[in-house]
Amino acid sequence: MTDKKTIKIAVTALNAIDSPGPGVSVIRGLREAESFDVQIIGLSYESLEPGIYMHDLVDKTYQIPYPSSGTSALFERLRYIHEKEKLDMIIPNFDAELFSFMKLAPELDKLGIKTFLPTVKQYEEREKFNLPAFGEKYGFNVPESKAIHNIADLYSIGSTFDYPLVVKGKFYDAGIAYNIDQAKSYFNKISAKWGLPIIIQEFVHGTEFNVTGLGDGEGNTISAVPIRKQYITDKGKAWGGISISDKEMLDLTDQFISSTKWRGGFELELMKNKEGKFFILEINPRIPAWVYLAVGAGQNIPEALVKLAMGMNPKPFSDYAVGKMFIRYSWDMIVDLEEFQQISTYGEL
């Protein structure tokens, strides 16, 4: 038996709450990796992110500045953390921070910190307001979408969209509006939190499915696991799901990866309408919070992602267990005030 290499990886999105970030699930995948051992450095924005206090999963946590502070502030902080920790890799998991990390990737690489992220072009092409152009370019069915900057535009879009329609934020949040008053209310609520534009999307009736996967940036599928969400919370998050076998969805995922040469993890949100046609509702450019189901079904996406970043050439997964389920649960940790004080005042724990 050979000694396994230990890789030091920083992971964000430790907010394993009712609308969870993927960080903790990603870390669980990494801890179970067969090909290497890990040390995990948590990167947090807030003092109450549960992952900070999960010492069996996260070895040490540092707070980092919000994406809205700009990349230079983020880079300074990461350089400080790197000086202390000598990171091998960073896995960012929040939509809102991805752009900043993509911009910094070359600088981080110079410091010896690997990432494995989509390109700016891939990231922008799949943005919600670019989805119609994306569908046309690559030949996917997508709902009609339009970005609006002004609440008054809700009146003029009536000619293009029928109610109900979906009102979405640039990064997160969405609501189904059945009339203009509801649409206005969602516009105000979502834009106050996530800024502009707001995306108005055609509502597609049908059954929702999701796929998580991993592309190697050359057009090859390293991993793809389709699921159906079984229980969805009032925040629109899955609380239970099951892996399924659907050739058409796997083909669609292959087509997505090969045509865009997708680099890194992703999640496809799909809707299958009455005629059995699949629509892509959204392409999330990062690993989803339910990724541990893919790990449990036999495709350790976080492990494969690290191998891609570290040049360890992972073999594409060829199989996964169908009918594996995940059921999410919440867990009350007991934390001493000293720990909270430590992360709140020094930004490190």
Partner: peptide, 11 residues
Amino acid sequence: SDMPNKFGSRT
């Protein structure tokens, strides 16, 4: 304590 939002402090 809050999750990140656009009002996050800018340095």
